[in-house]
Amino acid sequence: MSDLLKVENLKMFYHTSKGQVKAINDISFDMKKGETLGIVGESGCGKTSLGTSLLGMPSVPGKYESGKIIIDGENIIELKEEYIRKNIRWAKISMVFQGAMNSLTPVYTIGKQMLETLNRHVEMDKSEALKLIEEYLGYIGLHSSVANRYPHELSGGMKQRAVIAAALFLKPKLIILDEPTTALDVIVQAQIINLLKKLKKEFDLSFIFITHDLALESEIADRVCVMYGGKIAEIVRNEDIYKNAKHPYTKRLLAATPRLKKSVSKLEFIEGVPPDLLKSHKGCMFYERCKERIEKCKTEEPKIKEIGSGHYCTCHLIS
C-alpha cells in the first residue's frame, strides 16, 4: 500500500505570554491507505494538538515551527489557508472533534449546519444539497427528519452520528476522530465503533483515532501510536501491543487497563503528572515517572528507532 499521509519532524508550539508550549515536538510517522492509526496517551500529551495540526488549523496561539505534513504530494504547512480550506480540509482530511455538542451550534438545525459545510466547499443547488444531506444521514443510521431538528433535541449518540455524517460529505481520504465516544454509555459507544467500521469499508476510509482508552483502541486500530509529553513514545501494531510493548510508559498504561480475558489482582497507576511543556527538558520526558530509568535517561534524550517490523520505540533501554 502507498503512503496516504507522511509526517516528518513536525513541531507545533503554542506561543503564550509565559513562553512556548511545545505541544508537538519533533514527531514523524506515516500512514497507508485504508489504515487506522490509533493515538493514545494521557490528557496533555499532545493528541488533539496533533489532530488539529494535521488538519492545517492548529488552535490559536499555536504555530508550526518546522517539519512537513504531506498528503497527495502536498506539504500542508507550506500551503495558504485559502487553498487548504478549499482543497484539503474536509476534501482530503476531515475531523470529528471531541464532544459533538461543542461542534454543533445550538440555534441552527442539523440540516442547516450540514448545508453550511457543503456551501463552503462546493457549489450546489439547495434542493440537491438537502437531498445529499438526507442521503448521508441515512448512511449513519438517522432518519431524514433529523435534518430539521436542533442539537438539543438529539441524544448524545445521534449528535455524534450527525457530526460524523458532516465529516463524510466531501468523501475525504482520511478522517481524524478525536475521542468520538466520550461521554457516551457503553452501548452507544459500541454502536459508534461498529458504525465507523462499516463506514471505513463502505467508503474506503482511513482513520486517525484519538483516545485515552487502550481497550477501545484495540477494537478499531491497525497500529497504535503512544504519545507522551508532545513526543512519540512507541508505535506498535495493534496485535502486538499487549504482548510486546517495550516502552515503560506503554507498559504502565497497559497495566492500568482492565482485562476481560485475564485475571488482574490489582490495577496499577502512574505516579506523578505529565511534564510541563512550558519548561525545557533534558533527557527522557518520562524520566521522573519511570520505574526502569537509568542515569543516561536523565541527561540524554532518546531517539526513536525501529526495533522490529513496523515497531518503533523511543527509549534508552531498548537496544
Rank of each mutant, 00 (worst) to 15 (best):
L137G: 06
S265P: 00
G51T: 00
S103Y: 14
K298E: 06
Y312A: 02
F286H: 08
I232K: 03
E179D: 12
K126C: 00
L154R: 02
L115H: 01
K47I: 04
I235S: 02
Y139K: 15
I164Y: 08
K198D: 12
C313S: 15
T117S: 15
R120I: 09
E153Q: 15
Y14R: 04
A166N: 12
Y139T: 07
L55G: 02
S144P: 09
L137K: 00
Y287K: 01
S145G: 03
S263Y: 08
Q189V: 08
L177W: 02
I307F: 05
L154Y: 07
K261D: 12
V7A: 08
Y312Q: 01
Y64N: 05
Y139W: 09
M114A: 13
Q160F: 01
L205R: 14
S59E: 13
L130G: 03
M158I: 01
C225D: 00
T52E: 12
W90E: 04
K303W: 05
T257K: 06
L104T: 13
E268R: 13
H121N: 14
G230L: 13
S49Y: 00
E65M: 13
D26E: 15
K92M: 04
G99T: 07
T117Y: 05
L50Q: 01
K266H: 10
I77L: 11
F286Q: 06
T16M: 00
E295A: 11
D178H: 08
L168P: 07
G44S: 04
G99W: 04
G283D: 06
R259G: 03
V264Y: 00
A221R: 08
S66I: 08
L170W: 03
G157C: 08
T182N: 05
F269P: 05
L170P: 10
F209N: 05
K243Q: 12
M114Y: 12
S17I: 14
H143P: 10
A245E: 10
K131H: 08
N244M: 07
I175Y: 09
L50M: 14
L267D: 06
S155G: 06
K266V: 07
P172M: 03
D204L: 09
L118E: 10
A215F: 09
E42D: 08
A147T: 05
G19I: 06
Y287C: 00
L10D: 07
S94L: 03
K63I: 09
I318F: 06
A255M: 11
